[in-house]
Design a protein around this nucleic acid. Sequence first.
DNA 1: AACTGTGAATATTTTCACAGCA
DNA 2: TGCTGTGAAAATATTCACAGTT
Lengths: 217, 217
Amino acid sequence: MSSEELASAAGVGSAKLRKDLSHLGSYGTRGVGYEVQYLIYQISRELGLTQDWKVVIVGIGNLGHALANYGGFTSRGFTVAALVDADPRVIGETVAGLTVSSLDSLDETVSSLGIQIGVVATPGPAAQEICDRLVTAGVTGVLNFAPCVLTVPDGVMVRRVDLATELQILAFHEQRRAANRLAGEMPTEPQDLNAALNAARPVPPATLTKSRAEAAG
Amino acid sequence: MSSEELASAAGVGSAKLRKDLSHLGSYGTRGVGYEVQYLIYQISRELGLTQDWKVVIVGIGNLGHALANYGGFTSRGFTVAALVDADPRVIGETVAGLTVSSLDSLDETVSSLGIQIGVVATPGPAAQEICDRLVTAGVTGVLNFAPCVLTVPDGVMVRRVDLATELQILAFHEQRRAANRLAGEMPTEPQDLNAALNAARPVPPATLTKSRAEAAG
DNA sequence: AACTGTGAATATTTTCACAGCA
DNA sequence: TGCTGTGAAAATATTCACAGTT
């Protein structure tokens, strides 16, 4: 299969696809293309998909349920090995074939099962403490769905998925398009915003006026 | 509040934060810092948070449930205006205060409610058709949770959230660290991988051997 | 003829470092 | 003095375009 075909399937340009693959090695054949099976194997190995990773999900609310039941993990080498929650009404419940265990048992669960990755699906205020306990127990990667920044020591990686932010990015572009439709190529900062700003009055008028003058100059 | 404080709260460097804010205008005060309330207002306006966006969620499985119940949307100006599913067992059910309506009504729901953003939480095979119908009905932004690339016409934006990919990125870095721990600064492509490759035998040995030779040379 | 792999060119992002202002 | 805003520099990422290979 050619880089052109692979690229369009992936939604990127062919040059980018070839450049990216070249970082793994020369696994294509000039004049012919790529052997898909071989490529899959090489990419899988490079990405660490040849080994199995154990995951604990902390916080079995709506999102935790969805994650526990999400089929996409298993097929990519992730095993949800434990579910943990703080709420006594949830503890003991069976979700996706696993029994939800108490937050108290988190440390022991992680160490004894050899869990490497923790998924934080708790409310924001609880997230940092959960994260600290995960790290102490030996987790080296954290996927954070809580709406906050998590601080971790060196050697531990955090990734954050913020669902509201994803929608905001869509809304931002939509707004831009709508603005352009109305007024051709209007500058980013329209000058006659003073009325709106004063109406909203987020800070004392004095400061506001000064800052506007600065921005206009 | 100084750029240093804001940056550490956001988990980025202070130079980056100042540079980013400078694209909105000069809303800070030299020698002092930023007025947080004023900054919040300016950022909100620029991001389009001052207007309300209507969202339809298509596919009310585990993830759809979680999204419908997710509190973070409302506070950032998104209203989940409709829930749609194809499964007769789900249609009519009440989720997060809304009645799940039939897929047949999708087009009318979107146009009559003036929905701007569609969230696709369906299985992969259904996603493209749903997406097409959303776009035809007037949606201009799509948030895709299905594990596939969606094709849309110009003027429509798609963002994809792939939960398994997020875990893979964590696993990738974890694997790298583990490899480095074992062997200091081992090159990215160890040479003695032949045995493993042949054992896995993803392609006929001839091709495999040739490609390996090429990669080594 | 067809298609990869990759240097060189271009574009974008991030960081530095400091002039200028409160 | 302390901090912003921003050019200039450095680092990354993307695209071009073509030599090299089957």
